[in-house]
């Protein structure tokens, strides 16, 4: 029974740290809005069994280059966001 966690704040905010405390094997984390600024930090310390995604449009808007992200984090567009919601049993938004 996996969970999609969305994060929409930079890593200085407790949204990221709190999410990381409760994300478990099989879950996914999707960075949206200002959450995409946390992409590089999240790549450096990936959680075991937790898939990482960042929203393509929000990366582009902020001048963040998706191609520089390591392979541990995938980019998805809004259609991919919708798919992720459907693929997980529930969605938790950390803000």
């Amino acid at each position: 029974m996996s969970t999609l966690h969305t994060i929409n704040k930079t890593s200085t905010h407790s949204a990221l740290s709190s999410c990381l405390k409760v994300a478990r094997n099989g879950d996914s984390i999707l960075l949206i809005e200002d959450g995409v600024y946390a992409s590089s930090q999240l790549c450096q310390s990936p959680l075991e069994g937790v898939a990482l995604y960042a929203l393509h449009e929000d990366l582009l808007a902020r001048g963040l280059d998706a191609s520089t992200l390591s392979g541990t984090i995938k980019t998805v567009d809004y259609n991919g966001f919708v798919d992720l919601v459907c693929q997980h049993q529930r969605c938790v938004s950390w803000s």
């Binding site: 049993q89 529930r90 938790v92």
Partner: peptide
């Protein structure tokens, strides 16, 4: 502990934050 919170989330149909 956070582990218990993780379990509670897993047992939930809907989570609001």
């Amino acid at each position: 502990q956070a582990n218990t919170i993780a379990e509670l989330i897993r047992e939930s149909d809907v989570v609001f934050t």
